[in-house]
């Protein structure tokens, strides 16, 4: 009896303590849920990126083979256009390296360059966009507004050298998937990029954003990324993600 009483008291104490302990802010909780849905597993994808430059210039199509590990490390290899065929970009943690196949050179990319377009060919996507980490780990979120269908959460960058100062996510209540992200940078004068998730699609047993459009409001350009093929839970060789071996 005494034992049962003690257990009950302990349980009550635990429940009370849980109540006292700081819980995630609603914004952070929503961001964590988004991250959970986007939980990474190792993947191999073929991505088609179509760049619609400002001024109505002719669109450009890039084809990239991407391999990604559970921890977010990724290796992107360009297939099209032929002028940059074979170029590889390894992103491991917050570091990136570029490998140029014809010269055999490997160059380390500065964190600040991660905000730049990928070798000038990433359209409106930066290195950071292509290898983005977890939302909740990159930004500190607050719930800004909500309606019957969605939440809007605003995240402020937690790292000093973050590419964007803030990111505002619109998250669909029905399935917890983001439908829009607005990116802000003080250097760019505020919100200047909008990422719309146009289509979610199942590849095997995984549902992922299959079509995304990034618009740069300042440049009036846009880039559409479409996942053509994707396989998940693949065993990927360590050497592909080793900065001293990915070029070999």
């Amino acid at each position: 009896m005494k034992t049962s009483f003690s257990r009950i008291m302990a349980s009550i104490t635990l429940i009370l303590l849980r109540g006292i302990a700081p819980a995630d802010e609603p914004g952070t909780r929503i961001a964590r849920d988004v991250d959970r849905l986007e939980t990474r597993s190792s993947s191999r994808m073929r991505i088609e990126m179509t760049v619609y430059p400002e001024g109505g210039a002719e669109k450009r199509v890039f084809v990239i083979e991407s391999q990604e590990r559970e921890n977010g490390d990724s290796l992107a290899s360009f297939i099209e256009p032929k002028s940059i065929r074979g170029l590889r970009i390894l992103s491991a943690g917050r570091d990136s390296w570029v490998y140029f196949p014809s010269t055999g050179r490997v160059r380390k990319i500065a964190g600040s360059s991660r905000s730049g377009s990928v070798q000038g060919v990433g359209g409106d996507f930066s290195y950071e966009d292509l290898g983005a980490g977890d939302w909740a780990a990159t930004y500190s979120f607050d719930l800004v507004s909500e309606d019957a269908f969605s939440w809007v959460i605003l995240g402020r960058a937690t790292a000093k050298d973050a590419t964007y100062d803030a990111a505002e996510l619109t998250v669909r209540k029905s399935d917890g998937r983001p439908t829009r992200v607005r990116f802000s940078s003080i250097a760019e004068g505020g919100f200047f990029k909008i990422l719309d998730f146009l289509e979610y699609k199942a590849f095997g047993n995984r549902t992922v954003p299959a079509t995304m459009e990034m618009r740069n409001m300042k440049k009036e350009s846009r880039t559409v990324v479409r996942v053509v093929e994707a396989v998940f839970d693949q065993r990927l060789e360590d050497r592909l993600f080793d900065p001293t071996r990915f070029d070999k």
């Binding site: 377009s117 070798q119 000038g120």
Partner: peptide, 8 residues
């Protein structure tokens, strides 16, 4: 100076 992949 580089403007997307078209002008350098």
């Amino acid at each position: 100076k580089e403007t997307d992949d078209r002008f350098k």
